[in-house]
């Protein structure tokens, strides 16, 4: 029995595949808009001309050099990074929720973000360069997940519960260590730096930050997208997956490996941006349902669009940068509440 639709709700109802396509195109449209917005006023027309100038410099002949550089060297890499990082958080959050059969976990369930935070903090304390901070964050992110994963292997079986518990333990360990570093840090310089890193920011993105991030993120996203539908089966648990001819252990290891690389790569550049990996999957499910065949692309699009939007606010609203970790909650919570009100469905 199809529930009768009240007259007021008989608007144009988009099919779920159509919504997925819209969600996938949304970040690109937003990116174009974001290119034209910033503290520095550049008209839409000029922005377009500037964006075309790499093809033929003639397009932007009359535009000041500073505007060109701003769009091409400052805004463009930052917007691309926001897209990649947002998409990574969205997709890895969805992936982790599927393999943990739990809609309340996010990308940090195995401690990757906390580990990366510690890595960054230690590099900041040792006065590392941006590169060194990034690499340290990335490596410690991987280390944290390895600890969780192989720690749980100490038990004969690897039930999800043990893995989750290990993730929580390793997360606590690294957050304690980070707290220790913050305690040791000079309140005049390294402490604010660590604090700001832990709140997340894309301020320091340059083109040089992008290749590694893009390589890891895009590979991971394609992998997840192709795997898409199979997340459904994984989310039913090991026994059912096995009985349906899938080796859940191998598949989960691959997913965890990919998701960890993606999250670590993203976090090492952006700093800690919580919440996206938790909430985007929910928003996605409300829009396209729980089927991962659609949910994975939907959360890729949603995550990218969401972080782009957040970062746009962070960089353009006030003269000072607003930490992303602050905005994700401030913007995301009302957004999600609105969604929850609209469709009162389960997960």
């Amino acid at each position: 029995m199809a529930p009768s639709v009240p007259l007021t709700e008989r608007k144009i109802r988009l099919s779920k595949p159509a919504i997925v396509w819209i969600l996938l195109l949304l970040p690109f449209a937003l990116a174009m808009v974001a290119m034209t917005i910033g503290r520095y006023q550049i008209s839409v027309l000029d922005t377009v001309k500037i964006l075309l100038s790499p093809i033929s410099p003639a397009y932007a002949g009359d535009i000041p050099e500073v505007a060109k550089r701003l769009v091409l060297q400052i805004r463009a890499p930052r917007i691309l990074a926001a897209l990649l990082i947002g998409a990574s958080f969205g997709a890895t959050g969805t992936a982790f929720q599927a393999i943990f059969k739990n809609p309340l976990v996010d990308s940090n369930i195995l401690g990757v973000t906390t580990g990366a935070g510690f890595g960054a903090a230690i590099a900041i304390l040792l006065r590392g360069t941006h590169w060194q901070i990034q690499i340290s964050a990335f490596l410690f992110g991987l280390l944290a997940v390895s600890l969780s994963f192989f720690g749980s292997r100490l038990y004969k079986a690897t039930p999800l519960l043990v893995l989750t518990l290990m993730g929580i333990l390793v997360g606590s360990l690294f957050s304690s260590l980070t707290a220790l570093l913050k305690y040791m840090a000079d309140p005049l310089d390294s402490l604010p730096a660590i604090t700001f890193w832990l709140l997340g920011s894309l301020t320091n993105i340059t083109w040089r930050s992008l290749p590694v991030l893009a390589a890891i993120a895009l590979t991971g996203l394609v992998f997840f997208w192709f795997l898409g539908w199979r997340f459904n089966i994984i989310s039913l648990g090991d026994e059912e997956a096995k009985s349906l001819g899938i080796n859940p252990v191998h598949m989960k290891m691959m997913i965890i490996f990919a998701a960890t690389l993606m999250t670590a790569a993203a976090v090492s550049i952006s700093g800690v941006i919580g919440w996206v990996g938790l909430v985007i999957p929910h928003a996605g499910r409300m829009m396209v349902g729980p089927d991962h065949k659609r949910l994975i692309p939907a959360t890729i699009g949603l995550g990218a669009a969401f972080l782009l939007l957040i970062d746009l606010i962070a960089r353009a609203l006030l003269p000072g940068e607003i930490p992303l970790g602050v905005l994700t909650g401030l913007v995301g919570v009302p957004l999600l509440m609105g969604l929850l009100r609209k469709n009162r469905t389960g997960w």
């Binding site: 929720q97 599927a98 059969k101 739990n102 809609p103 459904n232 989310s235 039913l236 026994e239 059912e240 096995k242 009985s243 349906l244 001819g245 899938i246 080796n247 499910r285 349902g289 729980p290 089927d291 469905t345 389960g346 997960w347």
Partner: peptide
């Protein structure tokens, strides 16, 4: 595993999946 699953199916005891998949899914 895949070949085996083409021959034998297992219907476990009823439980709730974490996500509200549709009947068709």
């Amino acid at each position: 595993a895949q070949k085996r699953a083409q021959m034998i199916g297992l219907i476990p005891q009823l439980h709730m999946p974490a996500f509200a998949y549709s009947v068709k899914e």
